[in-house]
Design a protein around this nucleic acid. Structure first.
Lengths: 243, 243
DNA sequence: CGCAAATTTGAACGTAGTCAACAAGTGTGG
DNA sequence: CCACACTTGTTGACTACGTTCAAATTTGCG
């Protein structure tokens, strides 16, 4: 598989120059397969490699000392993983594959080089950090101030939108790819309560379910119920430096 | 007041060159006073200015449509504010002064210029984004998976540490500067329950309180109860490009 | 001093958690 | 190909943490 997934994502935002494309391809020279369930980076362990996810679905999470887990983020093709390895020797979060995945590892020096030689890419990385930051604050507000049903609805919308970003064929129905326990660990709920909320969303006609696939039946109502905003839309990047 | 607050913060991490200092001072040429309670940027409004906070304490928050508020972050001198204005025309969050403040506004073009001419500063901005991101994930885990008492304890520790970063004289006691309602909106609790948790922490001998001042009596127990990690410590920045 | 905001406390309530049991898949090795 | 183990999903009964509502008290401020 040639080309750069990260470049593909960035070219949604701007037209990349040939030089920029080549520089990005350098980040994805190497490739590594990661089996479903495998752990790419473990919390508190060193290593500090960074990755671009090329294929598959991953998650990052932390374990608290009572044994409970908080899933911080789901990771999709084109996402940069393990960026915290940039600043801490010991990883603050675990990276785990939810499906069979392909990643491209690179090191901090390569990123430093990229920042020096391609300021516009540097700026676009900053843009992506901000999208991620705002998405995190959305989830913070969801956990702090919204009901269980709203959180589950928001997760469904987020998953569908992100899946669609890489696979344009995704419409209103998609395979969840998560257990209800994982949904719970992402939304700050128990698996049991997630089950009840999914059932409720189904009874209200907002979603349908059959053997692992979810269909969003009433996207508008869901968005309203969930307070959901797609942060990858309505970007305003006119200020980016010339290449 | 001369000099750059942002430069002061960054020089905790690396020795800045004279050229870098001058570039950073450009960001803080202008100054604006913001009264306690005043709103610098309102959610969903345009403007898109960025700021460096020079003096005082601010917060960013969102309002949900049931009227509840989630405080996303507290902002301290040297912090960059309104960075989401970099990517969205309409601000995703409100910026509000908790005390009389001084800010230095600058625009996106100035940041673009800085990124082009000073790659190392560009990298350090990325570093700060990551610290912020990891702090946000800590809070996400706190809201999703820890008890009310733990969240309040974590907030107290965070506030003390960030206050101490700008004012070295801060020891174990400090003025909260927040109402219990604000503590609640930051931790996803009600003001009433915050009050009960503070009392409980007091009864257990972990903190003391008198007219608005809080004293951390047993920092180790607090850290353990709160699952708290200071993300501004133990950084590893050897990879930063040469100036 | 007087008013509004903030804190404190109690009582009742409700959302989500816990525990438990069972059903339905899913995969593995004999 | 089936038997068995294990994971995942589903449902009910009970519990508890935190919310809501209300009222009293204290604090801060003009």
């Amino acid at each position: 598989m040639a080309g750069s997934c990260f470049a593909e994502v960035l070219s949604e935002l701007v037209d990349l120059t040939q030089g920029e494309r080549t520089a990005l391809e350098n980040l994805e020279e190497r490739q590594r397969n990661v089996r479903r369930g495998a752990i790419l980076q473990r919390e508190n362990e060193t290593g500090g490699e960074l990755y671009i996810l090329r294929k598959g679905l991953m998650m990052s999470y932390v374990l608290l000392d009572d044994g409970s887990r908080q899933i911080l983020r789901f990771l999709f093709p084109g996402d940069m993983l393990g960026v915290s390895g940039l600043i801490y020797r010991e990883a603050p979060e675990t990276l785990c594959a939810l499906s069979d995945c392909v990643v491209s590892p690179f090191d901090r020096g390569q990123l430093a080089q990229l920042i020096i030689s391609h300021p516009r890419i540097s700026a676009m990385i900053l843009v992506y950090c901000q999208i991620e930051r705002v998405s995190l604050t959305d989830r913070l507000a969801a956990l702090g101030r919204t009901s269980a049903k709203a959180r589950v609805a928001a997760l469904l919308l987020e998953l569908r939108n992100r899946l669609r970003a890489t696979d344009k064929s995704v419409e209103d129905d998609f395979t969840l790819g998560l257990t209800q326990e994982e949904v719970g660990d992402a939304t700050g709920l128990t698996a049991v309560h997630v089950n009840r909320m999914l059932r409720q969303l189904e009874e209200e006609g907002l979603i349908a379910r059959e053997n692992g696939r979810v269909t969003l039946l009433d996207e508008n109502s869901l968005c309203r119920a969930a307070n959901y905003v797609n942060r990858f839309e309505r970007l305003d990047l006119g200020w980016l430096p010339r290449p």
